[in-house]
Design a protein around this nucleic acid. Structure first.
Lengths: 352, 352
DNA sequence: TTGTAAGCGTTATCAT
DNA sequence: ATGATAACGCTTACAA
């Protein structure tokens, strides 16, 4: 194999009988500042181009103590919800000439711990962290060392780190109001991962909306333990074998809804007729189902962009003014909820 | 703000009145090799732990000329197909203790060029590249400098770089055979991005399958110019307004199918009854549509894993034996294709 | 207008 | 069994 002889400042300098400093200065656009002759400038540039010189960012980073790199820690990049966030994070970071090191934690706190350590070891300047979310103590030192970080989606109640998330409470509250206004009172809640903030907020919104309409919540109607589709399927089958009076399902993720829908189809229940369904996280296909599914959409792209923006604010300012952002959700009405009765109930307003 | 005073080998060495070399050796598990006293070993380890020492990988990489990093270049990470590949790449890389720098090229060759340059500048040891795929000359120097790289999904005919992709030709061929065996002869092909290898191979499979059954292909039935859903919608509307006799649609991506389905619904055509549809790229929701959609599934996870494996083979061996892999697709029969006639046609076998 | 030299944090080579 | 030193490729005072 041909010897891999890479081009460095040294190489260029030698060929032109110059010092590395001069070459470095030219290539960093400091020619004017150092009054480098235009002849030299041209020669350096030409040679750099000719040799296809690529500055070694490693050396640069080491010297400058600046890596132009952010860490992105995500529970499951193959989940479209996370993938959309990842995309906007990458794009926004690149706008600032930063690169992204990606870690998929596979929904494991253990891998999350390892990932954060790894990324810090690689001297990333900051972290965009979508935590698994059920534990938080492994993140306390990020706080005490005030290492630049922005938490996204699932935040940690007992940790005071800046975050950006959807207004899950409000989104759920509004959704349940919508159901109630369509005269549903027996509404099951197919929840995601208990103990994670989006889940807790949504469940709280569900409960509060019911109470605001003087409907006594039945805690037994809250079922499930993960954001995946299997749970949606299992819980729906189980539930409908017990509680036949349920008229609507509120699924806390689109995958849960997918599972639920399969169960309903198997049970020969017509969606939007025999039973209504409504779910969190819009995805393109939901508009194409039969019937199209009514959803609570999150602003994924905005979430990613904002996270990066907040991170850069931390990197720039000495004064880290902790700023948390809750993005509004967007209710998308389609055809999966039946209006059981034509007269509307009283209008509703959320508590928080 | 508290001064950011990071712990280095130096710090530990000073505190223990040792040299950095000794500390380095202990922390790199070379204690035995250098016969370091167990007392020293213990002291070093304790201090490292106490100070929460994280070795600076930048310095390490620079010195060792080994970054333990791969570059992943992807046209659109928010596309579930790509996201699934990305995930398996990340997981497989991590198994080898490698990190991933992610670049989303937004389907732009220009950004692809920039990304490759950037990644090489960051001294990644190898590249997993999912090219935009319509141009290739900007990648020739990867070949001439034999920089370790594996191309995934879309490969470049005039470039001799190792790749892993699905057997798109065979997948399409089989799918069209299936349609023909269900007595369809007027089959439209809703294609993706022309000029990209998966598209060309699939179209070729489509044509060959028709010819193998003595059906003269009508080139006017091949429509479309991108993998997105808008194309699927537009082309389907257009097509059905012109060619009413078409009985089946073969969509070359699931997004195209989604668009097509919307068009069909709007036209009041019942899928699997009035018209049949079949598409590439299985996604979870396709099983839940009404009717469930028959698809040609690709082994995304395997593709990512294999790509990393091929890349590591390159990194290990001096002898770069170029190895290309075509993964078989998997035909998933559901309910979206109607059998127009009960007697079957003759069995089919592909040409390649 | 350009060169010299120190240093970023690590590891490898050669001493002792 | 441990230490001193050079080097990885780059930037930046400080010289000249």
């Amino acid at each position: 194999m041909a010897k891999k002889t890479l081009t460095t400042l040294q190489t260029i300098a030698e060929r032109l009988h110059l010092s590395v400093s001069t070459v470095s200065r030219v290539l960093n656009g400091k020619s004017n500042q150092y009054r480098i002759s235009s002849r030299t400038q041209q020669a350096v540039r030409d040679m750099a181009c000719q040799l296809d010189f690529k500055p070694n960012q490693l050396a640069r980073s080491l010297r400058l103590r600046k890596t132009q790199t952010l860490g992105l820690v995500i529970p499951d990049i193959s989940n479209p919800f996370f993938a959309q966030i990842a995309r906007s994070v990458e794009i926004e970071a690149r706008r600032h000439r930063y690169s992204i090191i990606l870690c998929d934690t596979q929904e494991s706190t253990e891998l999350e711990i390892e990932s954060v350590r790894l990324l810090r070891s690689r001297e990333v300047e900051g972290l965009i962290l979508l935590p698994v979310g059920q534990q938080s103590k492994h993140l306390t030192n990020l706080q005490t060392e005030d290492f630049p970080v922005v938490i996204v989606d699932r935040f940690l109640p007992d940790l005071d780190l800046p975050y950006v998330a959807s207004n899950n409470y409000r989104g759920a509250y509004d959704a349940v109001c919508y159901l109630v206004n369509h005269s549903h009172t027996k509404i099951a809640c197919l929840q995601g991962l208990p103990g994670t903030s989006p889940n807790e907020r949504r469940v709280r919104g569900y409960l509060d909306a019911l109470q605001a309409h003087n409907i006594a919540p039945d805690l037994d109607l809250i079922r499930g333990d993960s954001y995946g589709s299997q749970t949606g399927y299992d819980q729906t089958r189980q539930l409908l074998s017990e509680k036949v009076s349920v008229t609507a399902l509120f699924a806390l993720s689109n995958l849960i809804a997918l599972g639920a829908i399969r169960a309903l189809v198997e049970l020969n229940l017509r969606i939007g007729e025999d039973i209504s369904i409504l779910c969190f996280d819009d995805q393109p296909y939901l508009a194409y189902m039969d019937p199209p599914i009514t959803t609570v959409d999150q602003q994924n792209t905005e979430m990613g962009r904002l996270a990066v923006r907040l991170l850069f604010e931390q990197l720039a300012d000495e004064t880290i003014e902790k700023k948390n952002v809750l993005l509004p959700t967007k209710f998308i009405e389609r055809k999966s909820v039946k209006n059981l009765c034509l007269e509307r109930r009283n209008k509703c307003t959320p508590k928080h």
